[in-house]
């Protein structure tokens, strides 16, 4: 394992009796691009705010770039480039003024500052709006300005809260490419509730639901975790599909057989059982020839639902608040408004 850049140990944040974050533990190593997933109000923003020392955890601790969030918040902040949710900027300033100000806040000055401004403006392609007021910019450009300020001090770690939300597909592609480009040389954590992002942009996904880390794995592992729903079976032209339906229906473990429009037969299994051998045998005995057998897996959305709604995965918190389900969403209001 390479160098650990972020080390979160049992982070818990309580707001009164509510737990926004419940014993979250995870590590992020140098060079990883980690996607934070989870429903609105799950604790993603809370985790990020703790890591940037904007709020303190009720329990637990974290180390960022070797600095403890309790003992050395300034060290922590120096190592992080941060883009908060919904990109708050001083909209009355010019892009140029803003980047200069943020650079100065990062301790840059003189020629070094201007060199860095020039560099991030190139990186985030802000040349065309450099002399404009931020309030005149489109959402996509504002997002770039936010990224530019996060990059200005060449931080080893970037924390981006919902960097892709509210962007149109083109802007999204641009920002995503930018993140991937930046991620080649840095450690990045970004939150999203767009599940497709995991496969596209991340080297690892951490899923948080009801304040708990319910999943922490690579996209490949997530892929494998998708439960088996059944098989799409294709027969040769001489085999009757109607007959097959009754034959496969008799195989132990098969829950449902239906004919699909594309000419194949959908065989659903219960409990993810592997019934390929039985299907082949049954087909052979009935004089049918299978020429193709494709496993059907649940989508990433199903897993997400399973992970975030499964009471056993979410633990007692969930059980306790089942009666008033929506209260989980309230604790992080800013998460909520945004994507609808």
């Amino acid at each position: 394992m390479s160098e650990v850049m972020i080390e979160a140990q049992g982070l818990t944040k309580r707001y009164g009796p509510q737990r926004a974050l419940d014993n979250a533990t995870f590590n992020v190593s140098r060079g990883e691009i980690v996607g934070f997933l989870g429903p609105n109000g799950a604790g993603k923003s809370t985790t990020m705010k703790i890591l940037t020392c904007f709020i303190a955890p009720t329990e637990g601790t974290a180390k960022v770039n070797g600095c403890d969030i309790w003992r050395d918040p300034i060290g922590v902040r120096s190592a992080i480039g941060y883009l908060p949710e919904s990109t708050p900027l001083y909209t009355e300033m010019l892009v140029a003024e803003y980047l200069e100000f943020m650079g100065q806040m990062r301790g840059l000055a003189g020629p070094a500052l201007h060199k860095r401004i020039k560099r991030v403006v190139e990186e985030t392609q802000l040349e065309s709006v450099y002399a404009k007021e931020i309030r005149q910019l489109s959402k996509g450009f504002k997002q770039r300005v936010g990224l530019a300020q996060a990059l200005i001090h060449e931080p080893p770690i970037l924390i981006l809260d919902e960097p892709l939300s509210g962007l149109d597909p083109n802007q999204m592609t641009d920002i995503r490419d930018l993140i991937r480009e930046i991620g080649k040389s840095r450690t990045i954590i970004f939150s999203t509730h767009n599940l497709a992002e995991i496969a596209i942009s991340c080297t690892r996904a951490i899923c948080i639901a009801n304040g708990r880390v319910v999943f922490d794995a690579t996209p490949a592992e997530l892929e494998n975790r998708k439960p088996l729903r059944g098989y799409a079976v294709r027969l040769d032209d001489n085999s009757g599909r109607g007959k097959a339906q009754s034959v496969f229906g008799g195989v132990y473990g098969v829950s449902q057989v239906s004919l699909r429009d594309d000419g194949s037969i959908e065989v659903l299994v219960s409990g993810g059982q592997d019934v390929r051998a039985q299907l082949a045998r049954a087909a052979a005995e009935a004089g049918l020839t299978i020429i193709e057998l494709v496993p059907l897996r649940a989508s990433v959305y199903d897993i997400f639902r399973e992970l975030t709604l499964d009471p056993s995965a979410a633990g007692e918190i969930r059980a306790r608040s089942l009666a008033s389900d929506d209260e989980d969403d309230d604790d992080d209001d800013d998460d909520d408004d945004e994507d609808e």
């Binding site: 705010k49 940037t52 020392c53 904007f54 300034i74 060290g75 902040r77 120096s78 992080i80 941060y82 908060p84 949710e85 919904s86 708050p88 900027l89 001083y90 943020m102 806040m105 990062r106 301790g107 300020q149």
Partner: peptide
């Protein structure tokens, strides 16, 4: 209100 406080306090400032 505007959220810029969160970003300002993410700078290495006291």
């Amino acid at each position: 209100r505007s959220g810029t406080l969160e970003l300002l306090l993410a700078m290495p400032v006291r």
